[in-house]
């Protein structure tokens, strides 16, 4: 099953667009799927895991930042990771992207179609090269994958996607914060990643630009069908974008819920507010 590198016409075939059947399947526990057959064989067929954490711990000296985390994320899922600052959510991303190694446990990151095992990370800061023009910055995302005119072609295509095709020849310093973050998104997406890790990428943007970026992110995720892991401290952002939200508290997964709402979701709808309340209760205790 091809998970990446799908062209934009074949949208309906994407696992990201979860069908009712697939959701029902995901919401029942694996043992109940096919009691008469080997459960994982069919399960993998529908939705293989993009990555799984098995008993992952990460300690810095005496301090345990992640404590025995078990987490399976199916390919194409949009998962949001919420937690107070210092709860270990960024460490989780750094482990996933290979920037850091777990102290114990096993981390499996599956390959995408045609062995394109690409995990990309988008940071809180754009981290653009100030000395490279916008198109060249996007081409950084194709390091070791494509070169020259082909890379340029691809970078222009993805810039068109994020609405910045006309800025391709400019320096990053003349762009606004939101535009720079869009370039960073284009750079992360240009090689069609299998997993996109987002480390509070919208945290530094103003409220209106944030909403715009959320919509852009959702649209591109629906088109490209990558697995998205969004680390955020904004609960409303998490429920607006994600299929599933996990809350990390003191290095453990304190809550793991699905957000079974139709897209596009309306900001401020009662269902979102209810889920938001449930998550906040987990974070601060129901008394708060």
């Amino acid at each position: 099953m091809s998970v990446i590198a799908l062209d934009q016409k074949a949208k309906d075939a994407r696992p990201a667009r979860e069908t009712a059947e697939a959701r029902a399947l995901r919401e029942t526990t694996p043992t109940h799927w096919f009691p008469y057959a080997a459960p994982h064989a069919r399960g993998r067929d529908v939705r293989e895991n993009a990555f799984s954490f098995r008993g992952i711990s990460r300690k810095f000296g005496d301090k345990t930042v992640l404590d025995n985390i078990d987490l399976d994320v199916p390919a194409g899922q949009f998962i949001a990771v919420i937690g107070k600052s210092g709860c270990g959510k960024s460490t989780l991303l750094r482990l996933l992207t290979g920037l850091d190694r777990p102290t114990s446990g096993t981390l499996t990151v599956n390959k995408g179609a045609e062995g394109q095992n690409r995990t990309r990370i988008m940071f809180q800061e754009p981290r653009l090269l100030p000395w490279a023009r916008i198109a060249k910055n996007v081409e950084v995302g194709l390091t070791g994958i494509a070169k020259g005119p082909q890379a340029h072609e691809q970078s222009l295509a993805i810039l068109r996607e994020v609405g910045l095709a006309d800025r391709a020849k400019e320096w990053p310093s003349v762009l606004s914060g939101g535009q720079r973050q869009r370039v960073a998104l284009a750079r992360a997406l240009v090689a069609h990643p299998y997993i996109l890790a987002l480390d509070e990428p919208l945290g530094a943007l103003d409220a209106l630009t944030r909403i715009e970026m959320q919509q852009l992110l959702e649209r591109i995720w629906l088109q490209q069908a990558f697995t998205a892991v969004l680390v955020t401290h904004d609960v409303s952002e998490a429920v607006a974008l994600a299929d599933r939200v996990i809350v990390i508290d003191h290095g453990r997964i304190a809550l793991d819920i699905d957000i079974p709402l139709e897209r596009p979701r309306r900001h401020g709808s009662p269902e979102l507010a209810r889920l938001e309340g449930q998550i906040l209760d987990t974070l601060f205790g129901s008394a708060a």
Partner: peptide
């Protein structure tokens, strides 16, 4: 150092 980390994440070789 954030740019250097970014370069590493994107798989740049030492020379690049």
């Amino acid at each position: 150092p954030q740019l250097v980390e970014m370069g590493r994440v994107y798989g740049m070789s030492r020379a690049t």
